[in-house]
Nucleic acid binder design. Structure first.
Length: 459
RNA sequence: GGCCCCAUCGUCUAGUGGCCUAGGACACCACCCUCUCAAGGUGGAGGCACGGGUUCGAAUCCCGUUGGGGCUGCCA
């Protein structure tokens, strides 16, 4: 194939955008960009019962968020039914398909009776039923072999006897996925079909149809290994967090998500983990894609995301976090930046600035503060000093150090602990002195007073 | 059940017959740094599923076993 490659991503409107679809889209996009080809978006909405406009909108926004721009489309299969109809007419004419009126229960019953494998048994093959409405259409699978060569996995053999007569049109007249898929790939001159491994067995049927329709030279195929959960099962909506929009909403950066997704099944080479888009485009090879599946590990995603977060100019970070929280935390943004793994986590680290009062866990308080008698004197010493010192990080630090010394708590690390818990409600967080400076003298003092009375509920 | 695919540390991977007493990253452990937590630094534990071949030589090639996965819809 000497002309510019044409590839496509063909999601169906299921209500969310699966990370696996995102990975497939990315690999298609990388291939197209590197080869100077076209990346085409086609919505596979032949199942009219499931279609919803907002689902389609979700697909477009997810693709945009990931930065995977398409060159053509979106095309909608629901608007191309005339193409499928004429293809079906052709198949009827040539006798490549036949009508079938077996109810699904009947097919199942016969399979059970037969004791053999489940699936259709060709019952209507030679009944000569008219292809009238109310009857589905099945492809008459010929004897022979339907093997093909896959760009990532090599030869994929198949004996046609292991293929049942699959449906190409529903009894309500709608085309089935496999038919629409083939017709559109031919019509759109798709040169490389890059999709998930769960489609390999569809490919044999695809090719049979392709030939029956006289489309000529086959496209190339590349089947990508699947993404699994930690149980090594295909990532599924039911058990797993699979929606790209969920990761977006938690504050993962699209560039980090793309980087992580690229690492699943492909590698930029030894000792590299963080890769720019340009490097991905220039280094990507379909032949380098692994054929074994990969587990989607959110901890690694977090780590990649942290790297991208820390690499951001701090003012840009503040800007991009606007959707999660207001900019009140900006003065300590640089300190928060290296501690947050997602934009959403920034709030956890800075919520003491946003809440009217800290939420203090009783058990935590008892363990970290109440058990140490000296901390009472420490806190009141801190309070006294806080009311007098200049309100800047350095003075705040000095006040805590001095109060600690007077209370017999020499180590600063120890002395800051009760102050931190009383004021922020958490045992850990960004550096305390700067945090208190931003919080302000009055709110800080009030919280320490509250801590003191927590020590002595009566007084 | 049938058909097909896959197999390097817990996870993602490098490795395409000698450079491998198998390298990196995440996660984990220890230490250093340090106002906590991170970040950073140093060190550590941890893997070629198993069994046969082929070869002077196998993580790399072949066969088998085991394990895992996918498909098997009038969903896509």
């Amino acid at each position: 194939m000497s002309s510019a490659p044409r590839v496509r991503i063909a999601p169906s409107p299921t209500g969310y955008f699966h990370v696996g679809t995102g990975r497939t889209a990315l690999f298609n996009w990388l291939f197209a960009r590197q080869q100077g080809g076209s990346f085409i978006l086609r919505i596979e909405d032949t199942d009219t019962a499931r279609n919803r406009d907002e689902h389609i909108d979700g697909i477009l926004r997810a693709l945009e968020w990931l930065g995977l721009d398409w060159d053509e489309g979106p095309y909608y299969q629901s608007q191309r039914s005339h193409l499928y109809s004429s293809a079906i007419d052709l198949l009827i004419e040539s006798g490549a398909v036949y009508a079938c009126d077996c109810p699904p229960e009947e097919i199942q019953r016969r399979a059970k009776e037969r004791g053999g494998p489940p699936g259709y048994d060709g019952f209507c093959r030679d009944r000569g039923l008219e292809p009238s409405s109310g009857r589905m259409l099945r492809f008459r699978v010929p004897a022979g072999e339907s093997g093909f060569t896959d760009l990532v996995r090599g030869e994929v053999p198949k004996n046609n006897k292991d293929l049942e007569d699959f449906g190409v049109r529903k009894s309500n007249g709608d085309p089935l996925f496999i038919l629409a898929n083939v017709v559109d790939d031919a019509d759109m001159s798709i040169t490389h079909v890059i999709r998930g491994e769960d489609h390999v067995s569809n490919t044999h049927k695809y090719l049979l149809l392709w030939d029956a329709l006289g489309y000529g030279e086959w496209p190339e195929f590349a089947h990508l290994p699947l993404l699994y959960n930690d149980q090594r099962k295909k990532l599924s909506k039911r058990r797993d967090k699979v929606a790209v929009e969920d990761y977006r909403d938690e504050g993962y950066l699209p560039e980090a998500m793309v980087n992580y997704l690229a690492l699943l099944g492909w590698s930029p080479g030894a000792e590299r983990e963080i890769v720019t888009r340009e490097e991905m485009i220039s280094g990507f090879r379909l032949s380098d894609v692994k054929s074994a599946g990969a587990i989607f590990d959110e901890r690694k995603l977090q780590s990649v995301n942290s790297e991208y977060l820390r690499a951001l100019p701090t003012d840009e970070l503040v800007e991009r976090a606007q959707a999660w929280l207001l900019g009140r935390w900006a003065p300590i943004a640089g300190l928060v930046q290296e501690r947050a793994r997602t934009l959403g986590e920034i709030y956890t680290l800075t919520d003491f600035l946003y809440r009217p009062d800290p939420v203090i866990d009783d058990a935590e308080w008892d363990k970290a503060v109440a058990k140490t008698p000296a901390f009472e004197a420490l806190l009141s010493g801190v309070l006294t000093r806080f009311e007098q010192v200049e309100w800047d990080a350095e003075s705040i630090q000095q006040a805590v150090v001095d109060a600690g010394r007077d209370a017999g708590v020499e180590q600063v690390g120890k002395a800051q602990a009760p102050v931190r818990l009383a004021v922020t409600g958490r045992p850990v967080g960004p550096p305390l002195w700067q945090s208190l400076e931003v919080l302000g003298r009055d709110r800080t003092a009030a919280r320490i007073r509250a801590g003191l009375s927590r020590l002595h509920p009566g007084s």
